[in-house]
Amino acid sequence: MLSIVLDFQRLADRQALYAAFSEQSHCPPGFGNNLDALWDWITGGMALPAQIHLHHLPLPVEGQFAPVIAVFEEAVQALEGELHLIRD
């Protein structure tokens, strides 16, 4: 199972999140670094099953990371048990 760890105390911005995510999920070169590319990779290219660990995610999720978390949550629903978000 693919395991991705995103530590929000170490991610300065959304671009840093995309970089960490693409490296850990083995994205091909040219990943778009945007929400559409993220959705396409998670739902159509990334190895599944997978877990995404969200360390130190501030609650409520606001600001620049909120749209990314929303994509993750939507993908969890769409992939019916193949993707899990773990908040710790």
Rank of each mutant, 00 (worst) to 15 (best):
V61A: 00
A78L: 04
N34V: 06
G44Y: 06
P49Y: 05
G32P: 02
A12M: 08
L38Q: 07
L2N: 14
D40E: 13
H53R: 04
L35M: 04
N34G: 09
P67Y: 03
L59T: 11
E74V: 11
A47G: 02
V68E: 07
E74G: 11
V68C: 04
F31T: 03
I52E: 00
D40T: 13
D36F: 08
L2W: 03
R10G: 06
A37Q: 07
F8R: 02
F72V: 11
G30N: 05
Q64F: 14
S3V: 15
S3Y: 04
A75V: 02
A16W: 01
A70G: 11
G32Q: 06
M1G: 13
D13K: 07
L6M: 11
W41N: 10
L54F: 02
P29C: 09
P67V: 04
N33K: 08
A70Y: 10
P58E: 06
T43E: 09
P67N: 01
A66S: 14
A47Y: 04
L17K: 01
E73G: 05
A37H: 11
L59P: 00
M46A: 12
I69Q: 00
F72N: 04
M1D: 05
N34P: 00
Q15R: 12
H53G: 00
Q24E: 03
F65N: 01
L17N: 01
I86Y: 01
L17C: 10
N34I: 02
Q9R: 09
N33A: 13
M46H: 09
E74K: 14
V61Q: 01
P60Y: 00
W39Y: 15
H84R: 15
A20V: 10
W41T: 05
L6A: 12
L59W: 01
P58S: 06
S22G: 04
P60Q: 00
Y18V: 13
Q77V: 10
E62C: 11
L79D: 10
N34H: 12
P29M: 07
N33I: 00
F21M: 06
E62P: 00
L57N: 03
A16T: 02
E80W: 08
G30F: 14
C27K: 06
I86E: 02
F31C: 04
Q64R: 04
G45T: 13
I42F: 12
E23F: 08
L17T: 12
L2D: 06
S25E: 05
P58T: 05
G44T: 08
Q9Y: 09
I69G: 03
